[in-house]
Amino acid sequence: MKFANVLKTLRHSLVRASCLLLLFALASTASAQTPVFEIEIREHLFFPAEFEIPANQKVKLIIYNRDPTPEEFESYELNREKVIVGNSQGVVFIGPLKPGEYPFFGEFNLKTALGKIIVK
């Protein structure tokens, strides 16, 4: 029954690791007072299309979708993607980021829903 033992220990260590991760995660949420930024989607456009956020700090971004259609907020540079259903809102945490420009876009409207975050 050696094999079952190995599996059991494996499973135990996995559970322990995930518990640790969860604790870690909870600790990190509680710690910082994160600045909040809001953007809106109207007629498949971002308003504001450009805005500034502070560098090296985690930021909470609330995206309001005023259109009846869903939109996917996405950015390769920010490594974020989130579907926001029509007439609702979504929250995305971003950062901490180095200073620079971080374009984002609405994946469902690549032509018009474009914007960028300027980190200073």
Partner: peptide
């Protein structure tokens, strides 16, 4: 991991490296 840090359930740090000028993700 990305999704979890997007929801702030995992700590997020700055990028370790950036190879977007070699292979852009888009």
């Amino acid at each position: 991991a990305l999704y979890l840090s997007q929801a702030d359930l995992l700590p997020s740090q700055g990028a370790l490296w950036d190879t977007s000028n070699v292979f852009s993700e888009s």
